[in-house]
Simulated scan of single mutants.
Amino acid sequence: MDDHPEPPTLRVFVALAPPDEAKDELARALRPAYARYPRLRWNRIEDWHITLAFLGEQPSTVVPPLRSALAGRAASWPALHLSLRGGGHFDQRLLWSGIDGDLEQLHRLAADVRDLVRSCGIEFRERPLHPHLTLARSRRDDHVSVPLAAAGLTGFTGRPWRTERLHLVGSNIGRGPGPIHYRDIEAWRLGDAVRARGGGALTEP
Rank of each mutant, 00 (worst) to 15 (best):
G98M: 06
P5T: 08
A74P: 03
G176D: 09
V14I: 15
S145E: 11
R165D: 10
G152T: 10
Y182G: 05
H132F: 09
T203M: 14
T163V: 03
V117Y: 10
W48P: 00
S97E: 02
L133H: 03
L148Q: 15
I122M: 08
I173V: 15
G191C: 10
R39P: 04
R125M: 12
W48I: 02
H167G: 01
R108K: 14
Y34G: 07
D24H: 11
I180K: 08
D100N: 04
R73C: 11
A187V: 03
A149S: 05
L109Q: 00
P160R: 05
P19C: 01
P64F: 08
D24I: 08
M1V: 09
D102T: 06
A201K: 09
A111T: 09
G158L: 10
T154C: 05
R162C: 03
P160A: 00
D141P: 02
W96Q: 04
Q58R: 13
L133S: 02
A22M: 00
T157L: 08
I185W: 12
H49C: 01
E21C: 00
A27P: 01
V63Y: 04
W161M: 00
D24S: 14
I185Y: 09
P32H: 11
L94A: 14
A29V: 11
G170I: 08
L16I: 05
R114G: 07
L109V: 03
P32R: 11
L66E: 05
L148I: 07
T61K: 02
L82Q: 01
A71P: 05
G178W: 04
P179F: 03
S83A: 14
H89V: 05
V12H: 09
R28K: 11
L202Y: 10
G98S: 05
L80I: 00
P147K: 12
V12T: 13
A75E: 07
L30G: 11
E126L: 15
R165K: 15
G170D: 02
H81E: 03
N43I: 05
P177F: 09
G170V: 06
L66F: 06
V62Y: 02
H181E: 13
D3C: 06
G72K: 04
Y37W: 15
A35D: 15
T51S: 15
L190M: 06
A75N: 04
F156H: 11
R93P: 03
G72R: 07
W188C: 00
P38V: 08
L148G: 13
V144N: 15
R93I: 02
